[in-house]
Amino acid sequence: MTDAVHTRPFATADDSGHGGLQTFVTAGPSTIVADVSVAQGGLDLGPDPHELVCAGLAACTSMTVRLYANRKGWNIAAMHVEVFHHADPDQTPHDRFERVITIEGDLNDEQIERLFEIAEKCPIHKLLTAGARVVTTVGGN
Rank of each mutant, 00 (worst) to 15 (best):
V33Q: 06
A13S: 13
H125L: 02
P123H: 07
E110G: 08
D95S: 14
T92S: 15
P9H: 08
M79W: 03
L21M: 15
R133Y: 02
R133P: 00
V100F: 10
A39K: 14
G17T: 01
F116M: 11
E120H: 12
F84Q: 11
D35P: 02
E51G: 09
L45D: 14
Q91H: 14
G139V: 08
D14L: 12
V100L: 13
D106L: 11
D14M: 12
Q40E: 15
A132Q: 09
R66V: 02
C60W: 05
L128P: 04
G56L: 06
L57N: 04
Q111W: 03
D109I: 09
R114Y: 04
P89N: 12
Q91S: 12
C122Y: 01
H6E: 05
I103N: 00
D48N: 15
I124M: 13
I76A: 01
V33T: 15
I101V: 09
A132R: 07
T92A: 12
T23W: 04
S62L: 11
L52N: 06
G46I: 05
T7L: 14
H6P: 00
V138K: 10
V33H: 05
S30W: 12
T64K: 02
N75M: 07
G19D: 06
G20E: 07
Q111H: 05
R99A: 04
K126W: 03
E113A: 15
P47H: 12
G42F: 09
G139H: 14
V5G: 02
A39N: 11
L107Q: 04
L43S: 12
T61E: 07
N108K: 08
R133W: 03
V65L: 01
C54Q: 12
F97K: 00
A69Y: 04
L43P: 00
A69R: 03
R133G: 12
G46Y: 02
D90Q: 15
A78N: 10
